[in-house]
């Protein structure tokens, strides 16, 4: 087999699709890492408070599950994320499209948009609490803010970078506005928008945990914070794994969605 077959000009867009072997192969590195972890713990290179063993983490997870804490926390965190993220994404797409499309909107809203985007949410928490109280609304609003801006920006950039030729083709074919949108603008911007959404997801997760640390009455963030306070690093790790796992699954779903939406790209 030639070298290029291994490290060559592969276009992952074509070759990297979830065939069975592909999916299986993606487990190699996580498992290798797990193995390394187990071995290092066995060899006791680090004291157990610094590097907790997988066994401790598993035990901790089991305890949290059986006491019901884990399920409650998951339910609460996911609910907040779902609501805040979906609202933020929808608003973001709308705003981004508006900003890209309409000169007037850009003039009036751009400065405020750019300013608010950079305002550190966590610094203005007292303000938010005063306006929204300390209940679920506060947390959802904060996640909404965190999601809104990345999605809006990605949408705006996506719409703005549609190659001129595409639109000219549309005009040449005398397509109506709606057809132009459906056949040219939408498919051309979907990749950028989806990338933006995926970034926003990571952002929202981070803000979610931050919020749950500040007003830590419930949620995954609270489990991690309390774990830290009690120096129960195994509990912190449970939270780390869980958030990683959930985020990974969500990301996967987004990828599948993207693949489905872009299937026309792979033809021809």
């Amino acid at each position: 087999m030639s070298k290029s077959a291994v490290i060559g000009w592969h276009w992952p867009a074509i070759t990297f699709n979830p065939r069975y072997t592909g999916w299986l192969a993606s487990w190699i590195s996580p498992l290798a890492l797990l193995l390394a972890w187990v071995l290092v713990c066995r060899a006791q290179w680090f004291p157990e408070q610094i590097l907790v063993s997988p066994q401790d983490v598993a035990d901790s997870a089991r305890d949290l599950w059986s006491s019901g804490d884990l399920q409650d926390a998951l339910r609460v965190s996911l609910y907040r994320l779902a609501l805040g993220f979906s609202l933020g994404s929808l608003l973001g797409i709308a705003a981004g499209a508006l900003l890209a499309h309409s000169e007037t909107a850009r003039i009036y809203f751009s400065p405020t948009f750019n300013a608010l985007r950079q305002v550190p949410t966590l610094a203005l928490t007292p303000l938010f609490i005063l306006i929204f109280g300390i209940g679920e609304t506060l947390k959802i609003v904060i996640i909404l803010k965190a999601t809104f801006f990345p999605v809006a920006i990605a949408t705006r950039e996506g719409v703005r970078s549609i190659p001129r030729q595409y639109l000219e083709v549309g005009e040449a074919y005398c397509l109506s506005s709606w057809q132009q949108f459906r056949r040219i603008i939408f498919p051309a911007t979907v990749p950028a928008v989806l990338t933006g959404i995926r970034i926003a997801l990571g952002r929202s997760w981070m803000i979610l945990v931050a919020v749950e640390l500040l007003a830590a009455d419930s949620g995954i963030g609270q489990i991690m914070e309390m774990g830290r306070q009690m120096l129960r690093i195994d509990q912190v790790m449970v939270g780390v794994f869980l958030t990683g796992l959930i985020g990974f699954s969500l990301d996967r779903s987004l990828r599948l969605l993207e693949r489905w939406l872009l299937r026309w790209r792979h033809q021809g």
Partner: peptide
């Protein structure tokens, strides 16, 4: 009992949320 860090707690008190 609402678990809030000191700054959040102060705001919550000012807002009457606690």
């Amino acid at each position: 009992v609402v678990n809030l860090n000191p700054q959040a707690g102060a705001s919550a008190l000012a807002a009457g949320s606690v």
